[in-house]
Each structure stands twice: as structure tokens, then as C-alpha cells.
Write a protein that binds this DNA or RNA. Structure first.
Lengths: 218, 218
DNA sequence: TCCTTTATTTAGTCCTGTCTAATCTTTTTC
DNA sequence: GAAAAAGATTAGACAGGACTAAATAAAGGA
């Protein structure tokens, strides 16, 4: 049984890793609005419980057990968000704070019944995937960058058939998994894209490259 | 803003008083599965916040503010119980523990929307009244003792048109508000009742008296 | 009434989770 | 490659909430 704070830390680690970044003490502290020293202590506790491996000064990695528990928290959070929006009529931007509280309710039966009541949804109101009771995430409805329109903001979730050459090209532009891409133009001549990876950073990608990039909204 | 523990103590005091008894330190401790010394400390905290008056060695009384907050907790608890039973298909005896957790979720909007979603119910699955958002309890569907059948176990909730003489008669038999009455026989000759007020204590009440007693199940 | 029992409170301890301040690593910069 | 900066950890303090043990108040019985 985890305390509320332990659950918060575990989930913060999970989502940082999910976003492609490493999970460093500072990042966790920022996310939880707390201080790095407090995070260090909690990471040690979670490591002692076998939920993650903590390499001092090097960040953390989740164990299978830790990932499983984190997925159950994500499941609860997203199911409650679905309930709040679909059934109680909350707006999608009002639900996070309340769901943060609801996700700590501990009752497996409640979670499973809620999921059933909602029709076993696979995605929450934000489009995020809801893990099933075994922790399996549904396939994301990914789309190729070439299917996006100018003005879209998307996030890179996978690279299809990643060759060394392709990955090197992307790496050189600072584009990795989790990168946020905003399409600003598309050239009719060769189908190449202009996109922002950051407010002032513009890159050009050929149509061949774009066809390998799987993205999601938002 | 009250802590979870403060809320638990406040609600325990409220329900003890509701049951007609005084709220003594020991009773609160028993109800919360904690020690009297811990309760004393918490009662002091709640008294400092103006939610109750604590007379050392003499028990506590709630202030209007304290009663109001307690009623909001009761409201949340009973609304969630209704949700769990009516919507998620829980059995009535499975819901208490989960509702104990859910009642601490703090979001006025959530409570009001939940109530609306459930059709503004006035009574929970156990038949207990659900306070409205202003803390007002609905009228109980009381029934006269004369409408009860042999074998019923009921609780005295009110005395209709209480005259001094009637109250004196009841007082002499040790029957007061909150008393649990089990009907063991009814005489066809004059409509009088035989009932237990305790396992081995039998009393006889005339039909005239019984008609003044308003009771509830269970 | 005095003494015993029971109920309550007080004092001091411990555990959890947070913080600040100080120390120690790692990375960056010149 | 050494010094500075940034990031992480450790040590020590503190608040909340629980406990045990000891002291105190109220209630009951001889």
C-alpha cells in the first residue's frame, strides 16, 4: 500500500519517462511543486519498495512493478476524467484537479465497475489512452505527419522503420520522441514541410522523412 | 480547509449527537478506532477552529458552523453511496468503506453535479436522508407505530403532540428519542402493543400512546 | 464520606513528509 | 583542464497526527 505522496511521486516519474525524457530529481520536484531534497527522500522510499531503480545523480528508471502501479494510477485518473466530462458535464479543462484527488481512491472493484459503467473507454476526453486492468495501453490512433495540415500542432510518438541514417538526420535537428512539432508551411513543389520544434526554431523536412514520422494530436 | 482526520472527527461527533447520545471522548475514539488521547487533541483543534465547544470531561457540542460542515460530509457520503449502489451496482453492504474515502474529495462543484446526475435524491440506499446543498435534511418518511407490524424493529424519531402527561408516561418506561423498539406482539382486543426496548425489557403501550409515536426503519 | 474505578487529559515519543542549509557530483565554460 | 555553475544529496528542523504512560477529574460503592 502506497501513501498518497508515494503515489504522486511514482506517477510523476512515470509521466516524465513517458514523455521521452529521463526522470531527474529536479523535474519531479517541479512537477509536484516541491523541493528536490524532498524528492530524493521519496525516491529512496520507492526504490526500497522495489518500484524503481535510483542511480544517484543519474535519474531513475521504473521496475516492472513500479510501471504496473503507475499504470493503474493513470487508469484511475483517466477513467475519472472520462466520468467527470461524459457523465457530469464538466468541461475538459476543469477536471484535472478533481481527478488528481479521485485517482487516489483505492478500490479495485470501484475502478473496474466504473470502467464498465463508462463502456470500457479506451481514450479519455483529452484523447489520452486509458490502460486496461492489466496495464495494457490501447493502440494510439497515430497518423503520419504527411496526413497533417498546416497549422497542426502534433507530438512525435514513433518513427516508422527507423534506419540509422534517418535517426541521424532527425537527431541533428534535435527532433526526438516526444518532440512537439508545429507545421507552419508545406511546399507544393516537393511536399516538404516547414515546422517549428520550438517558438523560434524552424526546420525543413522532406516528404520522404515526414512519411516516417508518426504523430498524435495534440 | 480541514484535514482528513479533522473531517473524520467532526463527522464522528455529529453522528454521535445525531443518535441522541452525548459525544464523549471515548465514544469518538471507539468510532474512529483510535485512542482517547488522540481524540482530545483533535477536539481541541476543532474547537480552536470554531466548529465545536469542548467542555473538558463533559463532552462536546457542535457550533452552527461545525454542524454545517458535518452535514456537507454526510451529504457527500450519502450521495456517493447512492452512486455506488444505483449506478455501479454495488451491494448496499459493500459501499461504506469506499464512500468513506470518497466523502473527503473536496469539490463543491463535483458534489452538486453528482447530486444532479443522480436526480437530486433525498434518501440514500440505506434510507438515510441526504442533506441538500444548504444542509437541510429532507422530511423523513416517518410512520406511526400503529402502522407497524409485529416483528418490526424501529427507532423512535419524534413524539406527535407531546403533552406533559404523555412524555411522563414514556419517561417512566425509559423510552426517549432514539430508542430502538422491537414489536413482539399486538393484542387484538384493544390494539395495545408489547415491545422490547432492550433484549430483556418488555413494555406495554396502549393504542392511544402508540398513535403518537413516530418511528423509522430500521 | 473516603476510596476505588473509570473516563479524560497532559506530557513526551515516534513516524511521515515537508523544508532550509550545507555538502557533494556532474556539467559547463573559459 | 581548472573554476564556476547547476543539479542532487545529506543533515537537521519542524508540523501533523498518532501512540504510551502518567496525572487528574468524575462517578460509585462500602
Amino acid at each position: 500500500m502506497l501513501s498518497r505522496s508515494e503515489e504522486d511521486h511514482l506517477k510523476a516519474v512515470y509521466s516524465l519517462l513517458q514523455e521521452g525524457a529521463d526522470a531527474f530529481t529536479n523535474d519531479v520536484a517541479t512537477r509536484l511543486h516541491t523541493k528536490p531534497s524532498s524528492v530524493t527522500v521519496m525516491l529512496k522510499k520507492l526504490a526500497d519498495k522495489g518500484l524503481l531503480k535510483h542511480q544517484p545523480y543519474r535519474g531513475v528508471r521504473l521496475t516492472a512493478k513500479g510501471r504496473g502501479l503507475a499504470l493503474m494510477l493513470v487508469r484511475k485518473h483517466r477513467l475519472w476524467e472520462t466520468f467527470l466530462v461524459d457523465r457530469l458535464g464538466f468541461a475538459w479543462d476543469e477536471v484535472h484537479e478533481v481527478a488528481e484527488q479521485l485517482e487516489h481512491i483505492s478500490s479495485e472493484k470501484l475502478v473496474d465497475r466504473l470502467s464498465h459503467y463508462l463502456g470500457e473507454p479506451a481514450f479519455d476526453p483529452h484523447g489520452d489512452p486509458i490502460p486496461d486492468r492489466d496495464g495494457k495501453l490501447p493502440e494510439r490512433p497515430t497518423l503520419q505527419l504527411t496526413d497533417c495540415a498546416v497549422g497542426d500542432s502534433v507530438r512525435l510518438v514513433a518513427v516508422k522503420d527507423p534506419s540509422d541514417e534517418l535517426l541521424h538526420l532527425l537527431g541533428g535537428k534535435g527532433i526526438g520522441i516526444g518532440a512537439r512539432l508545429k507545421l507552419v508551411a508545406r511546399h507544393a513543389f516537393d511536399g516538404s514541410f516547414e515546422l517549428h520544434t520550438a517558438p523560434k526554431t524552424t526546420h525543413t523536412l522532406s516528404a520522404q522523412v515526414a512519411a516516417h514520422l508518426l504523430v498524435e494530436r495534440p
